[in-house]
Every structure is written in C-alpha cells, then in structure tokens.
Amino acid sequence: MIIKNKAVVSDDWTVLRLSENETPESVTVPAAKVIVPLKVWQAQRAKLQNRTELGVWLASNERPEELKGEVEKFDVIAVDFPKFADGRGYSIAYNLRARLGYVGELRAIGDVLRDQMFYMQRVGFDAFAPRPDKNIHDALKGLTDFSETYQTSLDQKLPLFRRVKRDGIATAG
C-alpha cells in the first residue's frame, strides 16, 4: 500500500536496494515492476531501457541532473529519505519537477513519516511510501495539516501575496 494522489492505494512496484555484496553492474534486476537505484540504471542502461515499465530512485546524496534528458523514460521516480531529518530530498524533488520537467509519479521512500508529508507534497511528491511500521491511514492525515501557505513551491505557483487580496492596515480590525 502507498499513498498516491491523496488516497491509500495498492501498489505493485518493488524498490531494489543493493545489498553489500552486490554491485550496480552485476545485480540482477527482476522482471517485475522495479524501481532501481540510479547507479543500476546507469550501469545497466542498455539492458533496462527497453523495459515497458521501469522506475528509478535517487539517494539523498545523488544529483537529479544525472537524469537530465531521460526523466520521461520512467514510470516512477523515487527519492530516498535515509533519515527523515535529511532534507536534501526536498530540493531533489523540486529540481526534478521544476528544472528537469518531470511530470510522472514522484515517490518519497525510506524514512517517510506523517509529519513531513505536507512539505513533501508541496515540493512535488505525489506518492508516498510511509515507513511500514506506521499506520498508512494515519499518515494520510499529514497531507491536510494546513489549508494555506505563504510561499511558492511546486504545488503553488503564486505566493499568497499574488494569489489573494490580503487585508491591509486600513481594513485590519
């Protein structure tokens, strides 16, 4: 189960993570719907690029520009949060959407928790795989904590001051 487009849905993708004795070059990518590490994609591009369904994931220390010009090849791009306090994934997501023009599913994986999801959705994530030990229906509530935001981001092209007419001092009570 994952959260996608603000609803809990079933999901048949698996995330491939390399174990210590596997290398990007040698690992066997199963035939199913797999989200592979960026390094595996880069090492096995020739083999993988003809698949009809493929996903790729970025670690928090990897650069989204490495996917420049090929983001549309993927059905899903995921960004890994090794620890929820590692905020690099937010800028990775922003860059994937705003600079690399990615419009497909953008999924947060790893240490994904309810209280970070509102921010994640704002920078362009539309899918979330909350940590398995947490209740996914509970996590869903994190997407609606706030109904207004001040600044622009991926979800909101206009800052509050361009979007609404805000009361000035003349009308303030």
């Binding site: 306090a85 905020g87 937010y90 970070q116 921010y119 994640m120 704002r122 001040y150 600044q151 981001s153």
Partner: peptide
Amino acid sequence: RQWSTFHPEFAYLP
C-alpha cells in the same frame, strides 16, 4: 518572516 514560515523545502536543513 512570512516567506520562511513553513517553507516546505527548507525545514530540514543541514
């Protein structure tokens, strides 16, 4: 102040 309040991208800085 308003811009930085709950800026979604910069809540988990180094």
